[in-house]
Design a protein around this nucleic acid. Structure first.
Lengths: 199, 199
DNA sequence: GCTGTTGTTGAGTGACCGCTCAAATATACC
DNA sequence: GGTATATTTGAGCGGTCACTCAACAACAGC
């Protein structure tokens, strides 16, 4: 052990998330990363190996935070389906035009659309993350079904994919230059879609 | 008038669509554009002014084709809502993994997520295109409502936004490395969502 | 055939890309 | 304080970026 690192790894990753989430993978240059992390190229490459390595870790950081947020949110609800419905409405509220987030759209979906056919390792990572999220949603729905919240004939894996596609659509729509009202109504409408699957 | 151009402008634009749709804006270099269009930089810049100019025209070409496709599709149906439901199923069929399209995701949405916060002129163009599509969907729904296909209390502008978000979600989901069955089922499920708005 | 005009060509522009590394610097241990 | 080790620094690497332009080529009108 000798000189201690000036930077905090997790803090640096969170700053990287802000930049990459806002600008995307290609439009974020090393110069901008240097500035955002307040680190010089040598330190960045010593710590993360490459721009791809940093992006990959930043993406995991983002996904982990999002995943924890969903789990924490659902823990507040006695019933899962109303929890998921409110989750959709909360996303809409958080993705209203003028919100402070780096981008209204989901960083994972942004990355999926930007790097498929262009950067295979990152594309594989994005696919794994989305599959994991789909799996988590399916598990929550299975639980809801076990508690009698869902009609017995509901295919939870299938509904999980519909739900994931709703979130993708909602946050992509929210990226448009549109009114807050539109986004909030869309969140409401998507939440309402789940009603027909309930008991 | 003197020497005639070797290239066909519309054909060149369609080749540009294939490249940009597949790789996105940033990952498509001038070198790749030269190769895809079989044109040298001088000709490209004489014809389209800049990479942004070419991209802009390619995006319009893509949007125009998509718009014509929807209009043509709906013309085949006596009733609009079943036409829209089949439209969703057709998108799913066309966006199945292994399909020949340059990308399963929509080029307009890919561009929206890639260039917002990065390239304002293109972002404005994308927003205008999406607003126009939303408007077209709303008009179709209004027509359906006038023909008694929809419940009288349905807010067509609002439903149009839900529908657009479905398409965004469906095609973004389809960009995932998933099974054909998942995508087809998702298309079915989204088509089914419209049932509760019908008379 | 000549001339004027337009289109094509591709080497070359400066700028920026991701990235490297030798030197300087800061700390832990003795 | 001296030494070993870990970290930071930033000038600079080769390469690619979007783009330009002078020279050349092809066609219309005469």
């Amino acid at each position: 052990m000798a000189r201690v690192a000036r930077y905090d790894r997790q803090a640096a990753l969170e700053k990287a998330v802000v930049l990459f989430w806002e600008k995307g993978y290609h439009a974020s240059s090393i110069k901008q990363i240097e500035h955002a992390l307040d680190m010089r190229p040598g330190s960045i490459y010593a710590a993360f190996g490459s721009k791809d390595g940093l992006f990959s870790e930043a993406l995991n950081t983002y996904a982990e935070k999002g995943s924890q947020h969903l789990v924490g949110h659902l823990a507040d609800y006695e019933f899962i389906i109303p929890g998921l419905q409110q989750y959709l409405r909360d996303i809409a509220s958080a993705c209203v035009p003028g919100c402070p987030a780096p981008s209204r759209a989901c960083m994972i979906v942004k990355t999926l659309l930007e790097v498929s056919n262009v950067n295979e390792p990152i594309a594989r990572q994005v696919n794994a993350l989305l599959a994991s999220i789909e799996h988590g949603l399916a598990e929550a729905l299975e639980q809801a079904k076990a508690h009698g919240e869902l009609k017995p004939e509901v295919d939870c894996a299938r509904l999980a994919r519909l739900l994931q596609a709703q979130i993708m659509g909602l946050r992509s729509f929210a990226q448009r230059d549109t009114s807050a009202r539109s986004v909030l109504q869309l969140g409401d409408d998507m939440a309402g879609l789940l009603d027909q699957y309930r008991t």
